[in-house]
Design a binder for these strands. Sequence first.
DNA 1: CCTTTAACGCAACTAAGTTGCATTAAATTT
DNA 2: AAATTTAATGCAACTTAGTTGCGTTAAAGG
Lengths: 125, 125
Amino acid sequence: MGIQRKTKSLQAVYEAFGDSNEALSVKMIRDRLGESVNKTTVYRLLDRLEEDGMVHSFSGEDSVTFYARCHACKGVSHDHNHPHFNCVSCDKVLCMEEEVVLPLSGKFKVTEARIFLKGICAECA
Amino acid sequence: MGIQRKTKSLQAVYEAFGDSNEALSVKMIRDRLGESVNKTTVYRLLDRLEEDGMVHSFSGEDSVTFYARCHACKGVSHDHNHPHFNCVSCDKVLCMEEEVVLPLSGKFKVTEARIFLKGICAECA
DNA sequence: CCTTTAACGCAACTAAGTTGCATTAAATTT
DNA sequence: AAATTTAATGCAACTTAGTTGCGTTAAAGG
């Protein structure tokens, strides 16, 4: 069912993402909000936001879930098969706009690709 | 430094993988061994095996680490950039032999790719 | 057989994420 | 504007993956 009431916590969590394509973990979100919002609440808000297609989630490196605003998602088609990128210099996790070409294989019928790339981002290069 | 003594636990854990390219979590390994080997020991054995290039690890879906024997790794070059595949039917996690073409991008210098694919495996097709 | 120390098992811990439940506060109704 | 409804919140307690410290066990070499 997703979000039904526009609460202060919701506003705060959603605004933590700003306008960038940076992905955040729950810990990072709470750090930005000064821990003012309860941990459970943040998880639940993110769940609802994801249900409504406002954010998408994926798991980062150390078994931590990251969340990012949906920018490239055009309307109904919520395709989150785009790669995510981790800069080893500034450590930011970003959504890449590039579309992923699903690898074809004789043995496997691939329907979904989760791609996590590492390297150096534009800012750090 | 890796493995220095060939203990029964080591033998058991390593043999749990059999000869296949199936990846296992610590829980799956312990289930196969009837919980006979201590949890901490399994983690430490896998660490040592990985250090010695006998297995490699990667994180699966629900923030669980998977381990698999190194088959395709030719000698010194331990390239584990190969994709991993999760069959949604039998739920097995497998190593794919296919090489990954690192996506090029103007904005990002990609040096490492972690690719986790989902779909239907050959057995289940 | 004796010695050395890698490997082990246990208990206690950390960190991410979840659940149940009583309380609070948006949104709607009167 | 006050009363009502119930979504959303905060808290405590929990689960699960993985780690650490430490005393004990058992490989491997002499």
